[in-house]
Computed example of a mutant assay.
Amino acid sequence: MRTMLSILATAAVTLTGCASTAPGWESRFGDAARQARALQVIDPDAPSRHRQLAMTDGKAAAGAMKAYAESYGYAVQEAKQPALSISTTSGR
């Protein structure tokens, strides 16, 4: 019984020593990722200026897409509805 108590006491002291170092590691967890993300931001104040977005109407956008496609040698094809025929005659 006494041997078991000394083994448990030794294990408790050993585990306490290991547990005290973990908060030191976790206090800076993710700092490198946050720093890398912050370095990739060109203008951090951009959302606060509330610039109006440039608007393009549908015809201008469609024309730009068609001109872009033709510049690379392929044409934009119009989507056609598939022909569907349903036969109601019986084979008798």
Rank of each mutant, 00 (worst) to 15 (best):
R2H: 14
L5A: 13
L5I: 10
L5M: 11
A9V: 10
T10F: 08
A12L: 15
V13I: 15
T14Q: 02
T14I: 04
L15M: 14
T16A: 15
G17A: 13
C18A: 10
A19W: 04
T21Q: 12
P23S: 14
P23K: 14
W25F: 15
W25M: 14
W25Y: 15
R28C: 03
R28G: 11
F29H: 07
G30E: 02
G30I: 00
D31F: 01
Q35H: 01
Q35C: 05
Q35T: 12
Q35V: 04
A36P: 00
R37W: 02
L39T: 05
L39Y: 03
Q40W: 03
D43H: 12
P44R: 04
A46R: 10
S48A: 15
R51Y: 05
Q52P: 01
Q52A: 14
L53Y: 11
A54M: 10
T56S: 09
D57F: 01
K59D: 11
A62N: 04
A62W: 02
A62C: 09
Y68S: 12
Y68V: 09
E70S: 09
E70R: 13
S71C: 03
G73H: 06
G73E: 04
G73P: 01
A75Q: 14
A75H: 12
A75S: 14
V76G: 01
Q77R: 12
E78F: 02
E78D: 14
E78W: 03
A79N: 08
A79D: 10
K80W: 00
K80G: 00
K80S: 06
P82Q: 09
P82R: 02
P82F: 02
A83M: 05
L84A: 11
S85G: 08
I86A: 13
S87M: 09
T88C: 08
T88E: 09
T89Y: 06
T89G: 09
S90I: 05
S90N: 09
G91P: 04
G91I: 13
G91M: 12
R92H: 11
